[in-house]
Amino acid sequence: MENLMSIGINSVFVGNILLAYFLGMCSFLALSKNIKTATGLGVAVVFVLTITTPANWLIYRFLLAPGALAWAGLPATDLSFLKLVLFIAVIAAIVQALEMVIDRYSPALYSALGVFLPLITVNCAILGTSLFMVERDYVFPESIVFGFGSGAGWCLAIVAMAAIQQKLRYADIPEGLQGFGINMITTGLMAIGFMLFAGISL
């Protein structure tokens, strides 16, 4: 339990997928102009990550990892090189399926998340989390917590960024620095803030 707690806290703050590993920057920069959109996208990312990370864990454990096909009588097979292709396919399929399910059962949620769902397939935070999960040898419950935590961390970062950008509208920024430049520097300062959590241990 304690282990799960520390993975969760770590993936939200210290090892924040956006601020420490730079994943999901493109949508982060493109959609952090207002808080409402940022929240919508953030929630969608949490949702998708919590589902795709454990799903990819199962696929990796039972199909791809070295020796994973022992149940099919092929203990010497190692298909782990296929993980990139299979993971991205799983993510694309789950996002597509989710979109249809949400559309069918909750039109309100669909109108809130709908536009963001297709964008999420190409958000590198999603594929990155699955790849980190493999690299760090997490077990199944850990992969769920890690998926959720990474999503929550990303969501926190984009909402905070949107809030900062709204305040920055009234700031007098040098001409060449406007837009992309100042966004990067703001994100850098935010990353410094998040690094302070590294000193806290549970």
């Binding site: 420490a20 850098g188 300062l189």
Partner: peptide, 11 residues
């Protein structure tokens, strides 16, 4: 560290 990358690209 990570923040260094953001700031260098910004500049």
């Amino acid at each position: 560290l990570a923040p260094g990358a953001f700031i260098v690209i910004g500049l």
